[in-house]
Nucleic acid binder design. Structure first.
Lengths: 167, 167, 167, 167
DNA sequence: AATGAATGAGTTTTCATTCAT
DNA sequence: TATGAATGAAAACTCATTCAT
């Protein structure tokens, strides 16, 4: 890819990230373009659709989460709770991480898989209560993420949910 | 207010409640009007803006929550958890309850007060962990509400959060 | 329908008719709206789509053609050629009649039926050459219509085509 | 002109010819460029506007038609009808030939001249009806071309029109 | 007071054309 | 010279809000 194109793509992505974060998916694409200092056509050259742009923003984050989940430590319980902690950190910074779990995409499926694996192993090891299935955990997490974005002391929320999850 | 006007106001409110619940704030006002069996002009006679209508819908719910919180039973812990349970029920039905905690209004302030009172008493009675302040609880709750709207088994999520909240 | 709505609908239809006639389907809808002296939203209130508006314009004309074709005289040959003549008259006035045969719609199907009936009867009566099937005639007609719109002496073109069609 | 530039010009012309033929003037210029295997900038190096490119495509065809008309055989009637047949063949293949008669240009004027000469000679020889002047024939032809593009059996249409033209 | 028609600014997206690489 | 990235002016369509009936 040409250098200028790459530069603009990056500018668009970062503008979109911050615009979506503060205004949700509803922000006009023209506004994102203006924020990136390019014309709307340039946005469309890089992303065929507003939704595609949104997904691209999300996927950057999801990819790093998948990495984290996959490189799990030996202790299943510790791995599970470490992942929760990591998510908590992210969500506290960016308001729209919760959307990352909703917008459907390949990466999202892989994130689910990785997270599910963590859950199953932690439950098998007796570190997490067994009356919880993955969809429940997912809903809980999505809510938690939304909550984390609203508070100035995310560690308190995390502590409550983690304690509630322990066997 | 004339009797028919009052009837219309009620019809609009209930139509808006169900429309917002299923489609979020984004539902066209015309759709709400049609659902209520009135013209859009009639909606505007009763509510100056779409946002005002949204708030009115929220306030109806908040008012009933305040009632519930205020008529608390003798046992502080039981009262606190009963309130959580009540909220969980609502949220499972209506997707937009979580907004009720966001939209600023007088009623919302009173809801916060009532909820705060429940928390303080429950903490004093040793039924709820003490390392949690009201803003944290609020954030947790908002997240929980969002999560509850997404799952088919809301009681699991509630159980986790309640367990996490216990002293 | 309310009086003002009916007035506007008529204004839109007539504006669209003249705009389409001179500029083809490509004329911006906003231009049609401006020509009609209404906002674009008003056009969309009456016609859900630009294409729907175009069809409405066409159907007014097609309907009158169907009437003509259906009220055919006793002599099959005379009826057939009278219909051609009638079409010629119209096409000489309005440049876009040829589109009426292209845009698919219920009315168009009925126009085809009526025209086909004329052809079959005229062929059976020996007034029209038999080596021609309806699709051919249709193509010929569409071309003829396009040609008629371009000349100042449409009767010459008609004469050529009619002579060519005779058995 | 450099050899590669000449090659590119040819590639663009041929790509445009086939793109216009199947999609009309509406095909995006980027698509034509892609089909030609060059960038859009290259198209603009050779043709100042999209319209200029379109005209260039047309003129190629017109030129070959002029050649055909000019190299007419001895028999005026045969020459005239052979020219019609030739046009019919082309139109059946390329949907936009009819435009070639519309777009004004020097070449078009020369085509008209050549065609007019054929008509006059054929009429003088008694092979073509005399109540027809060149503008009429032109209009008829344009229509015919449009019609030919729509049918799968162009020879039928041609036969009708030719028969109608005979004295 | 109710209706629902009209308004028009705002949204996503396309594409001819220009210009940096 | 070629490339293909960027531009930005439309275009179709939506919907909160106003206003004639």
């Amino acid at each position: 890819m040409r250098a200028d194109a790459q530069r603009n793509r990056a500018k668009v992505l970062s503008a979109a990230a911050s615009a979506f974060a503060s205004g949700g998916f509803g922000v006009p694409l023209d506004e994102i373009a203006a924020l990136a200092g390019v014309g709307p056509g340039t946005v469309y050259r890089h992303f065929p659709t507003k939704e595609a742009l949104f997904q691209a923003v999300m996927e950057e984050r999801i990819a790093s989460l998948i990495d984290f989940a996959s490189s799990s430590s030996a202790d299943p319980g510790a791995a599970f709770f470490a992942f929760l902690g990591r998510i908590g950190e992210e969500a506290a910074l960016k308001r729209d991480l919760s959307d990352a779990f909703v917008v459907p995409s390949d990466l999202q499926a892989r994130l689910h898989e990785a997270f599910n694996a963590l859950l199953v192993r932690a439950q098998a090891a007796g570190a997490v209560r067994r009356d919880l299935e993955f969809p429940d955990l997912l809903a809980l997490l999505k809510g938690l993420l939304a909550g984390l974005a609203e508070t100035s002391r995310p560690e308190r929320l995390l502590a409550v949910v983690m304690d509630g999850l322990r066997a």
